[in-house]
């Protein structure tokens, strides 16, 4: 397989982030804040994270134009901070991401709790420009920074009996106003089959656009599974548990007929209430066709050989 590379400079450094911020100031100067407020929009204050050092270019990148830093960090689904897209950027700042530890446990030889600083030392950081397709019908292109989840899982040596991996998001009612409502069965739990979790595309992300993850994007540590709908990528992970039983995820519990365990991007299997054939790429005017496995079929289709993807949606 040919992977195109542009060797000189990583795209995150080309993208003129300061331009977006200047634009925001310009709009503010015109009084847009009041209009946006009246329309129920936040000011979209994205916090600036520290730059991550030593990022290498990773494989599987796309040549598609990355979505702007501003859009990636102001249009989020992170229900712990409210169910509308603009709440996480406004409210996630309250979440404390230092100190942070993630427990990796369950069916493993060497269960261990990692401090975030130690997680960062497990493998070289890579930039991976992935498409992200939300189950709601929109998509983005995001230059993530992280390393394959496999590197972390190898550290704890999964037992032969381990078949699945669970990911638990932080549950902290003090800093997460959204968990006061029983919208989902908190804490947020997601899961993968072990072979999916060990796939080289599956990323443990710690940053985007060359910087530490903003809180609203799942700081300090989140899962990115680019061939699945976005909600599979658990944010702000505090616990990873290997099991022999298929995890019951938060969205499966909330609506089992609408959200399955696999949730692979599939234009032919509609959400019961809306079509999944097309998507709106953020920043584009018209919708585009959704690709099977979000365009990662060459890499992942073999994981599902012989499976009825309508049944295992």
């Amino acid at each position: 397989m040919l992977i195109k590379r542009r060797d000189d400079i990583v795209p995150s450094e080309i993208t003129p982030r300061p331009l977006f911020e200047r634009r925001r100031e310009f709009i503010k100067a015109l009084g847009a804040g009041s209009i946006a407020g009246a329309l129920g929009l936040g000011s979209g204050a994205a916090q600036a994270g520290a730059r991550l050092a030593g990022i290498q270019r990773g494989p599987f990148g796309t040549d598609e134009k990355p979505t702007s830093f501003k859009d990636i960090t102001t249009y989020n689904n992170f229900y712990e901070f409210g169910t509308d897209k603009y709440s996480p950027a406004e409210k996630a700042g309250r979440m404390k991401t230092q100190p942070w530890a993630v427990a990796v446990e369950g069916l493993v030889h060497k269960p261990r709790t990692f401090a975030i600083e130690d997680v960062l030392k497990l493998a070289p950081l890579e930039e991976r420009i992935y498409r992200l397709r939300c189950v709601e019908g929109w998509s983005m292109v995001i230059p993530w920074v992280g390393f394959p989840l496999e590197k972390l899982l190898r550290q704890v040596e999964p037992l032969g009996s381990a078949k699945y991996v669970e990911f638990w998001t932080l549950y902290d009612p003090k800093s997460m106003p959204g968990v006061r409502l029983p919208v989902l069965d908190w804490p947020y739990v997601e899961g993968l089959r072990l072979d999916e979790a060990l796939h080289p595309l599956t990323l443990l992300a710690v940053g985007l656009y060359g910087e530490e993850l903003p809180n609203q994007n799942g700081a300090p540590l989140r899962l990115v599974v680019p061939w699945k709908y976005g909600f599979k990528g658990a944010k702000s992970i505090v616990r990873i548990r290997l099991t022999d039983k298929q995890p019951e995820t938060a969205w499966m519990k909330a609506s089992p007929g609408e959200y399955g365990f696999y949730s692979n991007v599939n234009p032919e299997v509609d959400h019961p209430r809306w079509s999944q054939a097309t998507e709106r790429r953020i920043g584009e005017f018209f919708k585009r066709k959704t690709l099977m496995f979000n365009g990662y079929g060459d890499q992942v289709a073999r994981l599902y050989t012989g499976m009825d993807l309508r049944k295992y949606f």
């Binding site: 847009a32 209009i35 929009l41 979209g44 249009y75 897209k85 929109w138 709106r280 953020i282």
Partner: peptide
């Protein structure tokens, strides 16, 4: 008018079409 102004001044967030349709 608010929507038109917001669309023209890029003040409708990341997904302006969604905001316009919903509003």
């Amino acid at each position: 008018a608010g929507l038109a102004w917001g669309a023209f001044h890029d003040a409708l967030g990341a997904n302006p079409i969604e905001v316009i349709t919903r509003d």
